[in-house]
């Protein structure tokens, strides 16, 4: 890439470090938000203390607890969720060569949502809930891929339709589970979990998120050039010499890992994976080697801001999925209209 960067305008070269800096500031700022008042400087010092311990701390033990045990895990979770959703959305849009695709489209979100609902219904909590949501998420993708494959080949159109079918099935299953749930205890738990919240995140959740998100995003990033080629279409990719089926599987599994992990921790948070890649493309163009990392960082910043909004606007927290939908839908409508006026995109 050294050759392109030489010619790239200064703004584009500076963008990545700029975004990283912005992310860091947003993280520090997000930790200050809450009922216990803190300053960005204090937060920075408290966190820096872990790397180079200070002899004379200027903060109280309580402040340290608030930062490190209460707020930081939640902030880290938001970063991982925003990053993962944006990267998996970007990869799927390339794979399906359709800029309006979202992790929800391949059925994984609804599958993982049902898994979590089932767990709550059966009175299962904690890691078992996460594991069940995770398994249903991966399972639904395998099911979608199986439904969409005819004689060993998968057409993108049938894959999307299979995703719609499987999503509809699991949505219906979630409704049945809600009907069966005890309306005073389990129904509210299911409903709030599905709407998405990271209010009570602890380091165990962050670890699980990291296990789901980090290796999968690394895999997606390694396949960045192959995603470029697949976005021309399967036939053309095959003619160019890409191992189409292998790359499709790797990306589907990686995005399923990310989505299932995120749904398991925070419920269904829509629209981030759809919108962030568009923002990234506007900055750095369509090439996935540049677009994916930028989309990831913008997604992380975006979800941090959304989470800050969720816990400050009202005394009761607003579920994240509601805010991302409220922001995402109008943005999506604008993108759709702009694409329409440009003559749309080819989806043969």
């Amino acid at each position: 890439m050294s050759d392109t960067t030489k010619k790239a305008p200064l703004a584009r070269r500076a963008l990545f470090p700029l975004l990283l800096g912005l992310l860091l500031i947003t993280i520090l700022y997000s930790v200050t938000i809450g009922r216990y008042d803190l300053q960005v400087r204090d937060v920075a010092l408290i966190l820096w203390d872990n790397i180079s311990p200070s002899q004379a701390p200027s903060w109280t033990k309580l402040e340290e607890t608030v930062v490190e045990l209460v707020r930081l895990p939640r902030v880290l979770a938001a970063v991982l969720i925003g990053f993962g959703l944006a990267v998996s959305g970007g990869a799927l849009q390339g794979l399906f060569r359709n800029p309006l695709v979202d992790p929800g489209i391949i059925g994984v979100t609804a599958g993982a949502g049902f898994g979590g609902t089932l767990a709550i219904l059966l009175g299962i909590h904690g890691y078992m809930l996460l594991a069940i949501a995770f398994c249903f998420g991966i399972g639904s993708v395998v099911l979608v891929k199986f439904l969409a494959s005819v004689r060993g080949r998968t057409s993108i159109l049938t894959l999307v339709l299979a995703g719609v079918v499987i999503s509809a099935f699991f949505s219906a299953a979630i409704s049945i589970a809600k009907l069966l749930a005890d309306p005073f205890q389990k129904l509210p738990a299911i409903t709030y979990w599905l709407m998405g919240s990271i209010a009570s995140t602890h380091y165990g959740d962050v670890l699980l998120l990291a296990i789901a998100v980090i290796p999968a995003t690394i895999l997606i990033f390694l396949l960045r050039f192959q995603i470029n080629i697949l976005s021309l279409g399967e036939e053309k990719a095959r003619a160019l010499g890409t191992p189409v089926v292998l790359v499709q599987w790797l990306i589907l599994i990686a995005t399923a890992m990310i989505s299932a992990g995120i749904v398991a921790i925070s419920g269904i948070i829509g629209w981030v994976g759809l919108v962030m890649p568009h923002v990234a493309r506007a900055f750095v163009g369509a090439d996935h080697s540049r677009m994916l990392p930028v989309a990831g960082i913008i997604g992380a910043i975006y979800l941090l801001l959304v989470d800050n909004l969720a816990r400050t606007v009202t005394t009761a927290e607003i579920p994240l999925g509601i805010i991302t939908a409220l922001i995402g839908v109008p943005v999506f409508a604008i993108i759709l209209r702009r694409m329409h006026s440009k003559g749309g995109w080819s989806n043969d």
Binding site: M1, P99, L222, F225, N228, S231, A239, P243, G285, A286
Partner: peptide, 30 residues
Amino acid sequence: PQLFEVAFSYSVMDIALMGRVRHIGLFGSP
């Protein structure tokens, strides 16, 4: 292949580089 449009706004360099895929490993980039 026959003339076509792509789904994303790739540059000419991005498109032409895709021809190099056989010389670039599965996890590589140009």
